[in-house]
Simulated scan of single mutants.
Amino acid sequence: MTESRTALVTGSAGFIGFWLSRVLLDAGFEVVGLDSMSDYYDVGLKQARLDELSGRDGFVQHTAKVEDAEAVRAIFDDHRPDVVVHLAGQAGVRHSLKAPRDYVDANLVGTFNIMEGTREFGCQHLLMASTSSVYGANTEMPYREADKVDTQMSFYAATKKANEAMAHSYAHLHNIPTTMFRFFTVYGPWGRPDMAPYLFTSAILKGEAINVYNHGDMKRDFTYVADLVEAIRLLIDAVPEKDAGDSGSPVAPYRIVNIGNAAPVKLGDFIAAIEAATGKTATRNLMDIQPGDVPATWADTSLLSSLTGFTPSTPIENGVQNYVDWFRDYYGAA
């Protein structure tokens, strides 16, 4: 039931926020977007995403940082959202090695401001982005939401684990139904230019070598973006209750949900899919693993399936072909 419901989507000019905003508009939501339009990566790409949304009925965009408490409060006061999907934040494992304060500001202070908005003005359901990176040094796979997660290997992951703890406390103290998503390596059209699909595709099309870390001995649970946002849309109506008995809490209406493809793919196979989609062969520059990286990720998605009846399942070949087709169209690549 989406009639007359308003969703605040933070990070609306971002990769996932843009896709989710489209899906929610299609489902009948009024969507209030919030994005800082930071220059962490190409602002032109962010603006192009917003241009796709700006003509849609029911969409309104605000430009502000989530760490700006007054701006965030004003948006809550003006729109009184029924649902909040908090996707904004500083992303990137490698950037967190160079600029950790960015993660304190956006991921800790910014998330606190969003939680304060829901506390003061209320909402039916707060949903927030975490990451598979919180599983850190865990080696038992597939990763399950109830696994102990105390060994984060990057500061980015540490801030996301802190977000989970912060959200649980607010869910308990203020009875705010809250769902945390743990995303697994999201890719697809309109993807970020700092991520492997862009870096690989761009280099392969130009005939340049690609950097393959850990000598290619990596596996990732690549998740196609359309599958991911469909899962979020469905989870909006799976409002957690106290002591739900799954990945929830005995003292708060709170839940953690993995969103992944439940099928880890070898990095070499992902590169091969790009080669097939581009019709070109990659030259591989094999390198050591980077600090903060983990060798493998793999999501157990049984909880997502039980809550929504949906499991992401786009084959890597299809998703990569869609991405390469979009890349060629958007960037004018041969």
Score class of each variant (00 low, 15 high):
residue 3 E to K: 14
residue 6 T to R: 09
residue 11 G to N: 03
residue 12 S to A: 15
residue 15 F to A: 05
residue 15 F to Q: 04
residue 18 F to N: 12
residue 19 W to M: 05
residue 22 R to C: 14
residue 22 R to Y: 05
residue 28 G to H: 08
residue 31 V to Q: 10
residue 36 S to L: 13
residue 37 M to S: 07
residue 40 Y to A: 10
residue 41 Y to E: 14
residue 41 Y to T: 15
residue 51 D to W: 11
residue 59 F to T: 08
residue 60 V to D: 08
residue 60 V to Y: 05
residue 63 T to C: 05
residue 64 A to T: 02
residue 64 A to D: 06
residue 70 E to G: 09
residue 71 A to F: 02
residue 71 A to M: 02
residue 73 R to A: 13
residue 74 A to Y: 01
residue 74 A to K: 14
residue 78 D to L: 12
residue 81 P to T: 02
residue 83 V to C: 01
residue 88 A to H: 07
residue 89 G to C: 10
residue 90 Q to E: 11
residue 92 G to D: 08
residue 92 G to E: 08
residue 93 V to C: 05
residue 98 K to N: 13
residue 100 P to D: 10
residue 104 V to G: 02
residue 105 D to G: 02
residue 105 D to T: 14
residue 105 D to P: 02
residue 109 V to P: 00
residue 111 T to A: 13
residue 120 E to C: 03
residue 120 E to N: 07
residue 121 F to V: 13
residue 130 S to M: 09
residue 130 S to C: 12
residue 131 T to V: 11
residue 131 T to W: 11
residue 138 N to T: 09
residue 140 E to A: 12
residue 141 M to S: 05
residue 143 Y to C: 07
residue 144 R to S: 08
residue 144 R to A: 09
residue 144 R to Y: 12
residue 147 D to G: 04
residue 147 D to F: 11
residue 148 K to G: 03
residue 157 A to V: 06
residue 157 A to P: 00
residue 162 A to Y: 00
residue 162 A to F: 00
residue 164 E to S: 08
residue 164 E to P: 04
residue 165 A to K: 01
residue 167 A to W: 06
residue 168 H to E: 15
residue 169 S to C: 07
residue 169 S to Y: 10
residue 169 S to G: 04
residue 171 A to D: 05
residue 172 H to Y: 08
residue 172 H to W: 10
residue 174 H to T: 13
residue 176 I to R: 07
residue 186 V to N: 08
residue 190 W to E: 10
residue 193 P to H: 10
residue 197 P to L: 07
residue 201 T to V: 10
residue 202 S to R: 15
residue 203 A to T: 07
residue 204 I to A: 03
residue 205 L to R: 06
residue 210 I to R: 01
residue 213 Y to Q: 08
residue 216 G to W: 10
residue 217 D to P: 00
residue 219 K to L: 11
residue 222 F to M: 09
residue 223 T to Q: 01
residue 223 T to N: 01
residue 231 A to E: 01
residue 232 I to P: 01
residue 236 I to M: 11
residue 236 I to D: 03
residue 241 E to L: 07
residue 244 A to Q: 12
residue 244 A to I: 04
residue 247 S to T: 02
residue 249 S to T: 05
residue 250 P to F: 00
residue 261 N to V: 00
residue 265 V to M: 11
residue 265 V to A: 04
residue 268 G to Q: 06
residue 271 I to F: 03
residue 277 A to W: 03
residue 280 K to I: 04
residue 282 A to C: 10
residue 287 M to D: 06
residue 288 D to R: 06
residue 293 D to Q: 14
residue 294 V to I: 14
residue 297 T to C: 03
residue 298 W to K: 01
residue 298 W to A: 06
residue 299 A to N: 01
residue 300 D to S: 03
residue 301 T to F: 00
residue 301 T to H: 00
residue 302 S to V: 05
residue 306 S to R: 13
residue 306 S to Y: 02
residue 309 G to N: 09
residue 312 P to W: 04
residue 313 S to Y: 03
residue 314 T to I: 13
residue 315 P to S: 06
residue 322 N to T: 12
residue 323 Y to G: 02
residue 325 D to S: 14
residue 331 Y to A: 04
residue 331 Y to S: 04
